[in-house]
Structures are given as structure tokens and as C-alpha cells.
Design a protein around this nucleic acid. Structure first.
Length: 643
DNA sequence: GAGTTTGAAACT
DNA sequence: CAGTTTCAAACTC
């Protein structure tokens, strides 16, 4: 109801807004158009971006015609209200989506690239400005005079209004912003700090006001500066860390976190975040700590926005090391609702006892990541402190098998090229590169790497009695498979139903979709994405992250894969992505060639691509929760997930 | 949570 | 390359 008036007002005022937008936000509009969609949508919201978004949202008719905003006004209003309460997950999600759609991120990226360009807090400031703009006007002024409200908002944005209700705004928006732009650690910090000390908020806010946006801001911000930028990737990857540490010197915290216990990718080694994420191996849901999160986020995103938030919250709270946990000063509202275990394949944790986590037996090692606290491994050498050992071992293994650390699942198209397999025969778009060798599982259990990877068996498989639900090596039709599956379900899978009911359902649905529409049904696509995500590495982000190997890896993790998957699915190869992560391997191994056309650099690296694809998909999805989620994730939303 | 099953990884 | 052993995840109870 509240919105409606506003909306109308906006519509009527739309002409005016352009002017406003032009002044301040003008930047984003330009950027939006010119710059390709950034990979990281939600994460780094620059002031301009937010503003742009803000304007867009509230001013449908504003500069950006394409803006899907029509709905946004209502949503935004709703969001504000909900957010005020702090727990509105769904709304938050929408918020994020909006952000992504708007693609202001580009600006962010730019800023990020240039640390000096905008101080962290400065960005936040912008955000804050947005808040007032969004919430106050409606609430306060909306009823009385919309115009006045708009003006007020405008003033706030412009910094004219020196006494905005920052506290309230911050309180409401902080959550928003914080979660909305997880990537910006600085922003986070600022917000977090503000939240932590409401009394201080006003002053801080003033500092952060629009006018000062571009200036290197407060001492707090400056320190982070480049550092924050450098660690951006880490943050993303390790939401946990950042979130918690936001309050204080996040840079240090982050660094320490990664160095110490957090799951870090092995530096020199291009870790396959994909593997981590996707590694089909589900993290034990039982375990309380999910670090990597990528998968988790996927699930969350898919499931619902709320889930996502919860995931984030959980990560913040639980994730990572105690030290980090200690750092969580501000996060007041963290519910520790655990994500659904079923789908959530969060992160990898190993339980190695004899391998010292230096063999491929170890999932962490195989995935190219260090073991972290949640792991139950014994005598673990897969830790940063043993980096030399890890690297040496890795090299050794690679010397034995250059593809040892390469993604195991690659797209069928690639396979076709490589093996001559007829893709048409295989329902699933991806295939296990080496194939499985199952004897007793009939490729119906996770013992089977193909099944685990969500791909069908191929001619490369030496499995016996293959009944892989994702596609048999003999190429039997899906229908047949379904029939068999049904039989199985009826006969011997009571337990399965109960425990794995969800999973089966998913598979079943997938099959159905495939049968109905083989080419690319949503589910199949989803599947593929899942698979790809597991295997893929985030490409473009690395560029953005531009930081250390850690950064790149972390950044990539979830978002990327997701993004690509949809739009580029067909084009991409899971393997390739992985290759990106593993520079060494790529450098001297043939993997690259095999993996196909996916030039590691090319695809994912090119932000535009991703963005365009992602953004488009995102837009498309907006209505559709799950689908949106997937793509959104790629962009970074995962972290962004806000809250 | 302990024990079993399974198949990849590692070894011979 | 084939066979065997080792290993840890997946699975079952």
C-alpha cells in the first residue's frame, strides 16, 4: 500500500529524477551502459552503483530504460520494512537481485581495481545515502507530500540535508548494505562498526555522506584501502572470515584467517575451487562448519533467499576459526539456521587418517585447497604451514598424472571433440573425463564419480551394470532409465526414499525434464550448472580480484561457475575452468588442449561475457527464484547474499 | 557413531 | 598395463 503511492509518485516524477540521477549517480548510468556487466554484481557496490540502483529502483523512468524496476519500488519498500526488522531474508534476496540486474557493479569493479579511487567507507557512504533516499522519504514524507519526500531524499543524497535520520537509516540499511555488498569489506566494516556503535553512527554517517563519497574517507577506511582490495577475493571466498572481521582491521584478520585455518587455496597451485564446490562430494552436512560455501550458497540461493541469508549468517558465525568468530562483533542477527543438508554440498572436509592429506584420497588436497578446521584429518600436512610439502607433493602427483588435479567432469561437447563421443547419445551435457569403473554400485550411488558429478556415464566408463540416472554409458534412453529407476524405487529403495528422497526427486525431475525436453531443460541445465560449478573455476573474478592467488581463487569460487553455467553452459567446459585454477598444470600439461576450447583465460576471464550472460539470465530469472539464484551466485552474490 | 561397502588412488 | 593394496568417502545399521 505504501508503495503504491510512492510508485505513482515516482511515475509522475520520473522526468525529474533523471536530473537527479544525472547529478550524482550519473556515473553509474554511464558506467552501466558502457561497461560490460561485471562479474561481481552485488559484491562491490560503489556509491555510484548503489545510487544508480537506487535511482533506478525508485525511478523507473530514470535514465535506465531497461531497468526492470517497475517492481522494485514495491520491493524496495517492502525490503526496507523487512530489513528494518533485520530478518527479512527474502526481501534481501530481492534486493540483491535488483542490484545485480542493475549492473552497477561495473563501477564497483572499477573502483576496486583502483583502490584509491574510492575509499571503502566512501562506497558505503554512498550506500548509506541510498538508504535515506529509499526509506525515509516514503516513510516520513511519503504520505504528506511525495514531492517533498523526494526532494528530501534528493537532498540527503546530495548531502544537502545535513541532519538526515541516519541512525534509523543506517539501522535499516545497514543490514541491507552489509549483506547486500558483502564483497566490500570496507563497506561492511564501516557499516558493521556503525551498527556496533549506534551512537557513533551519526558522525560516521556524516563522514560517509554523499558529498564525501569520493574522498578518501575516514581513517578507518583508508587503512583498508588497497589491502581490502587485495583481500577482496578472500573475503568472497571466505565470507565467514570477512563478515566476522569486518569490524576491525579486516585485512589483517583476513590474512590471518586464511593463513591459519581458513580453507585457502594452495597458492602456487591453482586450486580447483570448482572441485571444492562442486566436488560433488557433499560436505558433511552434519558438520557444523561450512567454509567454502559455494555450494552452500548455491543451494541456498536456489532454495530461497532466506536460505541464503541464513547461510551467510551461519558462515559468519560458525565459519572459520575461532579467532575469526571472535571478531564477529556486530553481527547481531545471525540465525544459525542450517542450510538444508540434503542439497547443500557446501564445502569439502576431509577425514583422512593415513594419507596426511597429501594424496588424492584427500578431497581437500584433490580439490586444491588446504584443510581447515572442520576437517577431521589426522596428521594433516595440507596446511599453509606446510606449503612447501604440499606443493612438492602436488607436483609429484602431477608429474605422474598431469590431469590429476584437473576437473573430472567436462562438458560433453568437449568430450565429443576429444573422444568422438556422440553428445546426442548422452543426455547429460557433461561427462566424467576419465570415466568410472564401478562394479557394484551400478553407477547409482556416489561411489560412482560420474553419478557423483551429476553426469552420465560415457564410453570412457568401464562400469558394469550401469544405471546411471544421468545417462548410461550405453546411451540407453532416459525413459528406460526412468522405468528402471521406478522399479528400483519401488522395490529396494525404501530407505533411499526417506533419506535421499530429496535427491532422488531431483534426479527424477531432472530426468523427466530431460525426457520431455532433452536439449536443455531447466533442470538439466541446473544440473549442468551444478556440475560445472563443481568443476569450474570462476574466471573473470580473478581479474577483478587481481590480488593474490588467494583472491582470485576465492573470488571465483561460486559465483562464476554459476553465472557461466547458464548462459554459457554449452560453451563452457567444466574442466577448463578448473584448468584456470591450476596454472601450473596448464602451463605444462596438455590439459588445456584437451579441455577444449575453453580458453581458461578467455571465457571466464572476460567479464563482459559473464556479465552479459549473467545479467541477462538474472533478469530473466528475477521472477524465478531458483534460477536467479544460480546466476546471481556467480556474480558474487553468493557473498553478497547479504546477511 | 561404528562398521561395511565401494571404487579411486597408489603401489607393485 | 594389470593386479593388488591402500585409502577415505559413501553408505548401512
Amino acid at each position: 500500500m505504501q508503495d503504491s503511492p510512492v510508485f505513482n509518485y515516482i511515475n509522475s516524477l520520473s522526468p525529474i529524477r533523471p536530473v537527479k540521477s544525472i547529478q550524482n549517480p550519473h556515473q553509474f548510468s554511464t558506467l552501466n551502459f558502457t561497461s560490460p556487466p561485471s562479474v561481481f554484481t552485488s559484491p562491490h557496490l560503489t556509491s555510484s552503483h548503489k545510487e544508480s540502483r537506487f535511482f533506478k529502483t525508485h525511478h523507473p523512468s530514470s535514465s535506465d530504460p531497461t531497468n526492470p524496476l517497475q517492481e522494485s519500488p514495491d520491493k524496495s519498500t517492502a525490503n526496507e520494512e523487512v530489513v528494518a526488522e533485520a530478518e527479512a531474508t527474502s526481501t534481501t534476496t530481492e534486493f540483491n537481485i535488483d542490484v545485480e540486474m542493475e549492473q552497477p557493479q561495473i563501477v564497483k569493479e572499477t573502483n576496486l581495481d583502483d583502490p584509491l579511487a574510492v575509499p571503502p567507507c566512501g562506497r558505503e557512504t554512498t550506500d548509506l545515502s541510498l538508504v535515506p533516499y529509499a526509506s525515509p522519504p516514503r516513510e516520513e514524507n511519503g504520505s504528506s507530500s511525495e514531492d517533498a519526500g523526494m526532494q528530501k531524499m534528493y537532498d540527503n543524497v546530495q548531502g544537502k540535508n545535513e541532519t538526515p535520520d541516519w541512525d534509523s537509516l543506517i539501522a535499516d540499511s545497514s543490514e541491507f548494505l552489509i549483506f547486500g555488498s558483502p564483497n566490500d569489506s570496507e563497506a561492511f566494516r564501516c557499516l558493521m562498526m556503525q551498527r556496533a556503535s549506534p551512537s557513533q553512527a551519526p558522525s560516521v554517517m556524516q563522514t560517509m555522506q554523499p558529498g564525501s563519497i569520493n574522498e578518501p574517507e575516514s581513517s578507518t577506511a583508508s587503512p583498508y584501502g588497497a589491502v581490502s582490495v587485495l583481500h577482496r577475493g578472500i573475503r568472497r571466498r571466505c565470507l565467514d572470515f570477512e563478515m566476522p572481521g569486518n569490524k576491525q582491521t579486516s585485512s589483517e584478520n583476513n590474512t590471518a584467517a586464511c593463513g591459519s585455518s581458513s580453507r585457502c587455496v594452495v597458492p602456487s597451485i591453482g586450486l580447483h575451487l570448482n572441485a571444492i564446490l562442486m566436488s560433488t562430494k557433499d560436505c558433511k552436512t552434519n558438520t557444523t562448519h561450512d567454509y567454502s560455501c559455494s555450494e552452500k550458497y548455491q543451494v541456498d540461493l536456489q532454495g530461497s533467499s532466506s536460505t541464503l541469508q541464513e547461510a551467510l549468517d551461519q558462515t559468519e558465525i560458525e565459519a572459520v576459526e575461532p579467532t575469526l568468530e571472535e571478531l564477529h562483533l556486530s553481527s547481531p542477527k545471525k540465525k544459525r539456521v542450517k542450510l538444508e543438508a540434503g542439497e547443500g554440498e557446501s564445502c569439502k572436509r576431509c577425514n583422512c587418517k593415513k594419507s596426511k592429506c597429501l594424496k588424492l584420497y584427500c578431497e581437500c588436497f584433490a580439490a586444491g585447497v588446504y584443510c581447515i578446521e572442520p576437517c577431521s584429518c589426522i596428521d594433516c600436512f595440507n596446511k599453509p604451514i606446510h606449503e612447501d610439502t604440499v606443493l612438492a607433493t602436488r607436483k609429484q602427483i602431477e608429474s605422474r598424472n598431469p590431469l590429476a588435479f584437473a576437473p573430472k567432469v567436462i562438458k560433453s561437447s568437449d568430450l565429443v571433440l576429444e573422444t568422438g563421443e556422440d553428445a546426442s547419445k548422452t543426455p547429460a551435457s557433461a561427462r566424467h573425463k576419465r570415466g568410472c569403473n564401478c562394479k557394484k554400485s551400478n553407477c547409482l550411488k556416489k561411489y560412482c564419480e560420474c553419478f557423483q558429478g551429476g553426469v552420465g556415464c560415457s564410453i570412457n566408463c568401464r562400469c558394469e551394470g550401469c544405471k546411471n540416472a544421468f545417462g548410461r554409458k550405453d546411451g540407453s534412453s532416459i525413459v528406460d532409465m526412468e522405468a528402471e529407476q521406478e522399479e528400483e524405487n519401488e522395490t529396494s529403495e525404501k530407505n533411499r526414499r526417506t533419506k535421499k528422497q530429496d535427491y532422488n526427486t531431483e534426479v527424477y525431475l531432472m530426468r523427466k525434464e530431460e525426457s520431455s525436453a532433452l536439449p536443455a531443460t531447466p533442470m538439466s541445465i541446473y544440473r549442468e550448472q551444478m556440475v560445472q560449478l563443481k568443476n569450474m573455476m570462476p574466471p573473470p573474478q580473478s581479474v577483478l580480484g587481481g590480488g593474490s592467488s588467494f583472491n582470485s581463487q576465492y573470488t571465483r569460487k561460486p559465483e562464476i561457475s554459476l553465472t557461466h553455467s547458464r548462459t554459457k553452459k554449452s560453451l563452457e567446459t567444466v574442466a577448463e575452468d578448473g584448468a584456470e585454477e591450476m596454472p601450473e598444470i596448464l602451463s605444462h600439461s596438455h590439459i588445456d588442449n584437451n579441455t577444449k576450447a575453453v580458453s581458461p583465460n578467455g571465457k571466464r576471464v572476460s567479464p563482459p561475457h559473464l556479465d552479459s550472460s549473467s545479467s541477462g539470465s538474472v533478469l530473466g530469472r528475477r521472477s524465478g527464484g531458483r534460477k536467479l539464484i544460480l546466476q546471481s551466485i556467480p556474480t558474487f552474490p553468493s557473498l553478497t547474499p547479504k546477511h
